[in-house]
Amino acid sequence: MAKGIAVIGDSESIKGFGAIGLDIFPCDDVENVAQLFRKIADGDNYAIIYLTEELFAQIEKERKRYEDRITPAVIPIIGVKGNNGIGSKRLSAFVEQAVGSDILFS
């Protein structure tokens, strides 16, 4: 079954994604992001959910539920505010979980 790709973020960062055919969900208020994310993820219509980094950091608890499922893949991307290293930190966390300590990127 074909699924879509969702992008959640502040409206400035994500409006370009709408033009290339992804479904955008503007969320300028960090308080609402958890609720919005739950709605999108529970609908199971999206295989990939991109989130801007600052919102990604807000929904740690919600993300946990989808960690061991194949879909949706929840992926942090950088927004207009720039890169704050959450993506790289996530990779280090994977290595740390698998190996025991971060031997690759430290």
Partner: peptide, 19 residues
């Protein structure tokens, strides 16, 4: 003008996920 130009996307990307 910017918002209006991007408002109605022409393309729609769908993905198929197999495991």
């Amino acid at each position: 003008a910017l918002d209006a130009s991007l408002m109605s996307p022409k393309q729609q990307v769908g993905v198929n996920v197999s495991s």
